[in-house]
Amino acid sequence: MGEERFYLYDDVEDTKTRFVSFMGEEERFDLAITTTTRHYGKHLVLDMQSNRFAIIGTDDLEEPGYLEKAFQLNTKNAAELKDFLYEVI
Score class of each variant (00 low, 15 high):
1 M>T: 14
1 M>I: 08
2 G>Q: 11
2 G>S: 14
5 R>T: 11
6 F>M: 12
7 Y>S: 02
7 Y>V: 00
7 Y>G: 01
9 Y>D: 07
9 Y>M: 08
10 D>R: 14
10 D>E: 12
10 D>N: 12
11 D>F: 14
13 E>M: 07
13 E>R: 08
14 D>Q: 10
14 D>V: 10
15 T>W: 15
16 K>A: 00
16 K>G: 09
16 K>N: 10
16 K>D: 15
16 K>V: 15
17 T>R: 10
18 R>I: 06
19 F>A: 09
19 F>K: 13
19 F>N: 13
20 V>I: 13
20 V>E: 12
20 V>Y: 04
21 S>Y: 08
22 F>C: 00
22 F>D: 06
23 M>V: 10
25 E>V: 08
25 E>W: 13
26 E>R: 13
28 R>N: 14
28 R>Y: 11
29 F>P: 11
29 F>S: 01
30 D>G: 03
31 L>Q: 09
31 L>I: 04
31 L>C: 06
31 L>G: 09
31 L>K: 00
32 A>P: 15
33 I>D: 02
33 I>V: 09
33 I>T: 01
34 T>V: 02
34 T>N: 06
36 T>M: 15
36 T>E: 09
36 T>K: 11
37 T>G: 10
38 R>H: 14
38 R>G: 15
38 R>V: 03
39 H>N: 13
40 Y>P: 03
41 G>C: 02
41 G>T: 00
41 G>W: 08
42 K>C: 05
43 H>K: 14
45 V>A: 05
46 L>P: 04
46 L>Y: 10
46 L>V: 13
47 D>T: 01
47 D>G: 02
49 Q>E: 14
50 S>P: 05
51 N>S: 10
52 R>T: 05
52 R>G: 01
54 A>E: 03
55 I>C: 11
55 I>D: 03
56 I>V: 11
56 I>Q: 05
57 G>Q: 05
58 T>N: 13
59 D>Q: 06
59 D>F: 15
59 D>A: 11
60 D>S: 11
60 D>W: 02
60 D>I: 03
61 L>V: 03
61 L>M: 07
62 E>P: 07
62 E>Y: 04
63 E>K: 12
63 E>D: 09
64 P>S: 01
64 P>G: 03
64 P>I: 04
65 G>V: 03
66 Y>A: 04
67 L>W: 07
67 L>S: 08
68 E>M: 04
68 E>P: 01
70 A>Y: 00
71 F>D: 02
71 F>R: 06
71 F>G: 04
73 L>K: 00
74 N>K: 00
74 N>W: 00
74 N>V: 04
75 T>R: 12
75 T>Q: 10
75 T>H: 12
76 K>A: 01
76 K>W: 01
76 K>G: 06
79 A>P: 00
79 A>V: 05
80 E>G: 02
80 E>V: 00
81 L>N: 03
82 K>S: 13
82 K>C: 07
83 D>F: 01
84 F>R: 05
84 F>S: 02
85 L>H: 01
85 L>V: 09
85 L>I: 10
85 L>Y: 07
86 Y>N: 05
86 Y>I: 05
86 Y>W: 14
86 Y>K: 12
87 E>C: 08
88 V>P: 12
88 V>F: 04
89 I>L: 14
89 I>P: 02
89 I>M: 14
